[in-house]
Nucleic acid binder design. Sequence first.
DNA 1: GTTGAGCGTT
Length: 449
Amino acid sequence: MSVEYLQVAEDEGEEPIELPTEEDGTLLLSTLAAQFPGTCGLKYRTGESKPMRGVRLNEGRLNPPPEGWGSQIFYCVFPKENKRKSDDNLENSTAKTKRIETKLRCTDLIVLGLPWKTTEQNLREYFETFGEVLMAQVKKDSKTGQSKGFGFIRFASYESQMRALAQRHVIDGRWCDVKVPNSKEGLIQQVPCKVFIGRCTEDLAAEDLREYFGKFGEVTDVFIPKPFRAFSFVTFLDPEVAQSLCGEDHIIKGVSVHVSNAAPKSETRGGGGYGGGGNRQGSHVANRGGPGGPDASAIYKQCYNAPNQGTWSNTGHRSNIDMPNLQNLGITGQPQQGGNQPNCNPIGLGLNLGALPMNPALVAAALNQAGWGLIGNLQNQPEQTFNQGFSNPQSSSGNNNPNPNSQGGGGGGSTGFINWMNQGGQGQDGQWARPPPQQQQDKSFLKYD
DNA sequence: GTTGAGCGTT
């Protein structure tokens, strides 16, 4: 049998090297990353003066273009870090860009939930797609050599570390969590990644915000409430960047917006509900870790049904930085089979959506408080996981398009819940067009008057 | 040869 090779270069103008493909014609991302550490994908030119085209990535395998790999040269794609160099046409192009170079030290990271079969080599190869891996070890029983199902990794760059911490992982077919050792919640940001953008106008689209704020650091999410509420949220990969922008005024497309902390103004109204529980060290940030309520995570655990190997494969969400780290929500589910799931309406954990006079802004605020600040990202979840209980009659759930590019909350919603949320304007008075099916009628902590 | 929340024999 002959192995097919394709030519890959780090960038245009660089000398390509040949990489072997697999039997099925795909190129393993790990193969690619072995030669180009830090790569997260491939792109290629379809013609002169045409834009680059991305190569499909699915389950760690890069799929050839329809016409095959051919003899053309493919170029590595690297995670966007410090994109722009100089922005002279910018009102706000101060030395801020430098802030994102703030280097924070790396720590060992614990990887929980490894399959028994995963070796240190596997572990290393998997995480090399996030950046240079300095150390990878799988803890084993000293006698039997059997894996204990967890291990440690160490990245060379804090950037990579944050990327790895920012999402859940599927390693050798199993959901795994990456955490800072002995930090209970894993990705608890001491500093919030999310900022509140006030004074937005309606023509400030998610893409505008993403592009503009992308100058200061990688933007992982943009959320614009619908209907229009004159504010939005921008989430950065680097909390330092988010922090550095707080309190500032920025001009985007001629609109002066104000950046501030994404903390909800009213922490907990009336004592009931969420805010109080998870608060630590006086921080009241929107996207701190898990829900404050003690039983919320239990409900999440019950509800969450991680995709099994047979179904997650066609979603293409791996290596997607936009994928929320569900462990923050108390979700540690593994693919589980059978069993009656309880109500999987995530709002059912306390938000009574059956109540009528509810507007999206309230929900957004409540979700924020409940630790669902990443809600804008959840549309990237495989439908069968997130959409349970939210099957929108308008969104045919037979459609399993990967929806690869997160446009934040403003993007073309594809999942039932997001659609449902975004339908807020369709009803009269900006009310929710219709409550989702399967809402729970009991405990409501949200008060609106 | 089994297991599935946790925290690293060096």
